[in-house]
Nucleic acid binder design. Structure first.
Ligand SMILES: [Mn+2]
Ligand SMILES: [Mn+2]
Ligand SMILES: [Mn+2]
Ligand SMILES: [Mn+2]
Lengths: 172, 172
DNA sequence: CCTACAAGTTAACCTTGGCTAAAATACTAG
DNA sequence: CTAGTATTTTAGCCAAGGTTAACTTGTAGG
């Protein structure tokens, strides 16, 4: 089931004749202090707590905007999960005060949900545009952005945005 | 408990006077075809299945290299979780054939575990070096890399690596 | 108005990844 | 070699996020 029965190697990076690699590698290899290391993993666990919620409110906002309404069926189809799963997650979104709806009816975002959707959307757009500006193909950029977006700090977002702007002005 | 009682906004991106934004934004806003969209989320779910395993084998490899042995205590401290959690996860790693150990003894990687650790380490290093080359501070780069690494495809990795190399040769 | 089908919910189940508290084992000092 | 401490494991708990199958509700056509 897990796709790890056999491993390939990443690119040709090990045998490329570059002078800077040993220096850089040893720097990357040094273990950070234990507590700082723990904070890295904690940040990741933290992101995992909200990322599904973010994707849901973002998708609901998109559906409301582009489709006029946000039905569970569409969410299930777009997320690639069963309707039962959507139903349960929506219950959670409601209990968190992000979504509102009457039973068997279309979904809406609360103020809080809209705020979250706006933030997530901005962040998602910045990451996606950055990847495209870097030269990543649209298809792959979309896939990578969907996961990366939840793990990019504000500092990095700012830098990505600046990079994208410079890249665009260069090619105009 | 969830950090979403109140929202700020990301930077000052909405009111910045740039000409290219509306064009780009509408492009980002268009919903992709339903099945492609579903594949994006599926890729993320997929990454989530292996990311903890990857972090574990990577950490075990690091500890073996830098400390000589990999004890549960160190893993628990570095991951910022309880020893019980480590014990349970290690059981899973063993059942997947990634780790081997005798009860109450230090941990080792199997061939498969070493292959996974090597892959993960390379990928992690590429992402970290890329973020630093972009201009992200070391501390933040480490945090972001810890999460991003699991959501970066081969195409993007190659581009990141090229960027890092060019950046380095430019500043030499 | 009724009926069939579409859409949404609920129930029962599973795995993962956390936790605390208690038990078992290993290690080290005296 | 034995006691005490450190380490590891186990047991029992929980929430999230997924599944399928069965049930309920909504809606559109005849
Ligand atoms: Mn998103
Ligand atoms: Mn996402
Ligand atoms: Mn890693
Ligand atoms: Mn990681």
């Amino acid at each position: 089931m897990l796709p790890y029965e056999h491993f390939g190697y990443i690119g040709a990076m090990t045998d490329s004749p570059n002078e800077v690699t040993p220096d850089r590698l040893s720097q990357a290899d040094a273990l950070p202090p234990s507590d700082q290391h723990a904070q890295q993993y904690a940040a990741v666990r933290n992101a995992h707590e909200t990322e599904l919620l973010e994707d849901y409110v973002e998708l609901i906002a998109d559906l409301l905007e582009h489709q006029g309404e946000a039905r569970s069926t569409d969410i299930a189809a777009r997320m690639g999960v069963s309707q039962a799963t959507v139903s349960k997650t929506v219950t959670r979104l409601k209990s968190l005060g992000l979504v509102s709806s009457k039973p068997y009816r279309s979904l809406f975002l609360t103020e809080k949900g809209e705020a979250m959707a706006a933030m997530s959307n901005q962040r998602h757009a910045i990451v996606l545009q950055f990847l495209r500006a870097l030269g990543v193909s649209d298809r792959i950029a979309r896939i990578d952005a969907e996961g990366m977006e939840h793990h990019v700090s504000q500092e990095t977002l700012d830098i990505m945005q600046r990079f994208t702007r410079e890249q665009e002005s260069r090619s105009s």
